[in-house]
Simulated assay, not measured.
Amino acid sequence: MKRQLIVRAFAGAVLLGSAAALAPAAMAQVSINIGIGVPPPAPVYEVVPPPRAGYVWAPGYWDWDDHGHKHAWKKGHWVGERPGYVYEQPRWVRASNGWVLQPERWNRGPGRGDDDDQGHGHDHDRGRGGYHCPPGHAKKGEC
């Protein structure tokens, strides 16, 4: 009986320890850009709804459907406004490995006054919750 109790306690400790060790890994984020050889089709015409206070219209765009191995249209939708930032919709760019979808992002608006920004409005690599251009991509003109 005592031995069973020790085995259960040990098994519980091992289970708890492995759960604690795996928790940070489950929260990690990975960003992978996969190039495809097929350019996106022409955009689909969508009627832009009337303005909505506190929101910005995110136009529809062609996404890549890995399961169907083809482009799939994602309809436009409203996103919450971020004061001081300008929304930039997802866009396809030609890269060395084919066509790559750049995700939507929020660029710092004009007149924000950062000397290192050089008037471009991009929030590259500043760690303030804005867009981050992956290492090496800016030099290739992919961001």
Rank of each mutant, 00 (worst) to 15 (best):
V44T: 02
V44M: 13
Y45S: 14
E46F: 00
E46V: 02
E46S: 05
V47Q: 00
V47Y: 00
V47D: 00
V47T: 10
V48L: 01
V48F: 00
V48D: 01
P49D: 08
P50K: 07
P50D: 09
P51T: 13
P51R: 14
P51F: 10
P51Q: 11
P51G: 07
R52E: 09
R52S: 02
A53F: 04
A53L: 11
G54W: 10
Y55T: 03
Y55E: 12
V56R: 06
V56P: 01
V56L: 07
V56T: 05
W57C: 07
W57Q: 08
A58N: 07
A58I: 05
P59C: 13
G60N: 05
Y61C: 12
W62F: 15
W62S: 06
W62A: 15
D63K: 05
D63P: 02
W64K: 10
W64V: 15
W64Y: 15
D65Q: 06
D65F: 06
D65E: 09
D65C: 11
D65L: 13
D66V: 04
D66L: 10
D66T: 06
D66K: 05
D66I: 04
H67P: 00
H67M: 11
H67L: 13
G68V: 03
G68K: 15
G68T: 03
H69T: 09
H69M: 14
K70E: 12
H71L: 12
A72F: 08
A72W: 07
A72K: 12
A72Q: 07
W73Q: 08
K74N: 07
K74G: 01
K75W: 05
G76N: 02
H77F: 12
H77Y: 14
W78M: 07
W78V: 06
W78S: 08
V79P: 01
V79D: 00
V79I: 12
G80I: 09
G80D: 02
G80P: 02
G80S: 11
G80V: 14
E81L: 14
R82L: 04
R82W: 04
R82C: 03
P83A: 15
P83V: 10
G84L: 09
Y85S: 08
Y85F: 15
V86H: 02
V86S: 09
Y87Q: 03
Y87I: 04
E88V: 14
Q89H: 08
P90I: 15
R91P: 01
R91S: 13
